[in-house]
């Protein structure tokens, strides 16, 4: 059989969504960011809203997300993405607006903006990548770092009495009347990727009905920061992250 006989539309089993650009991603091999980007982009494609979407990139590993999503993008100062998303949605209410942040950005320096955007019930989608570490700056302790977990600023493990507790900000946000959909997902297995994509679709669909904040946490890995192979990092995620950050919907408003 020749190559030309194989390359036919009916044989196509996978293609990259056009809502991702051609730029080569800078993410480490094995990192969950690439998958999370892809499924957000696929949802935008499937909903046909590429020209009506504005995304907000954070500071952290995904700071360059604006180079990968082929929609109009704004780069926020560290932690301020929910404030940016608020203004964009208020000024352009017929647009779909999403923010994409990591744990240091969303749950440490940007806690105020996160809580108040959720409490006001801004009609936006917030994507939150939780890998328990500051990846971009080289593996420091994050608000979500687990007890006893070693990082470059907790080299002997996170000592709760000295360094505080890992923050379950997603459960906290679910308490606020301004959030309509709060869920925790993961992307380290194909089944979980499919489930996560359905959640992200729901989180974007909710914007059509002015329901308030749709918040999707994605528990992810950081094999570089955790100093593990990608396979070992995914195993460690299942054995350590998921018991503390259990997957599933936390709040679904009717």
């Amino acid at each position: 059989m020749k190559k030309e006989d194989i390359i036919k539309p009916e044989n196509l089993v996978y293609r990259r969504t056009p809502v991702l650009t051609d730029n080569v991603m800078h993410y480490c091999p094995g990192c969950g960011h690439g998958t999370a980007h892809r499924i957000v982009a696929e949802v935008i494609e499937e909903m046909g809203i590429q020209e009506k979407t504005i995304g907000i990139a954070p500071v952290g590993c995904s700071v360059l997300a604006y180079n990968y999503f082929d929609v109009d993008m704004q780069e926020a100062a560290h932690g301020r993405a929910p404030a940016l998303a608020t203004a964009v949605k208020r000024l352009k209410p017929d647009f779909f607006v999403f923010s994409y942040q990591g744990d240091g950005d969303l749950a440490a320096i940007g806690t105020g903006e996160t809580i108040h955007a959720c409490n006001r019930g801004e009609n936006i989608t917030m994507i939150f990548i939780n890998n328990g570490i500051y990846g971009m700056t080289g593996g420091q302790m994050a608000p979500t770092t687990l007890e006893a977990m070693k990082t470059s600023t907790s080299p002997y493990g996170r000592e709760l009495s000295m360094m505080g507790n890992p923050l379950k900000i997603t459960e906290l946000l679910a308490q606020l009347p301004g959030t309509c959909y709060v869920t925790r997902q993961a992307v380290h297995t194909p089944a979980l990727v499919r489930r996560c994509k359905r959640a992200i679709r729901q989180a974007f669909e909710n914007q059509k009905e002015n329901k308030g904040v749709s918040f999707v946490e994605i528990v992810s890995n950081c094999n570089s920061g955790w100093k593990m192979t990608p396979v070992a990092a995914n195993k460690w995620l299942e054995e350590n992250m998921l018991p503390y950050y259990p997957l599933g919907d936390i709040k679904v408003s009717k």
């Binding site: 704004q74 100062a77 404030a83 940016l84 608020t86 203004a87 964009v88 352009k92 903006e113 108040h116």
Partner: peptide, 19 residues
Amino acid sequence: LQAESEIASINMVYAGAAC
């Protein structure tokens, strides 16, 4: 909009200006 802080205010301005 009354924001939660001056920090949020100026970042909202950033986003609006960006539009």
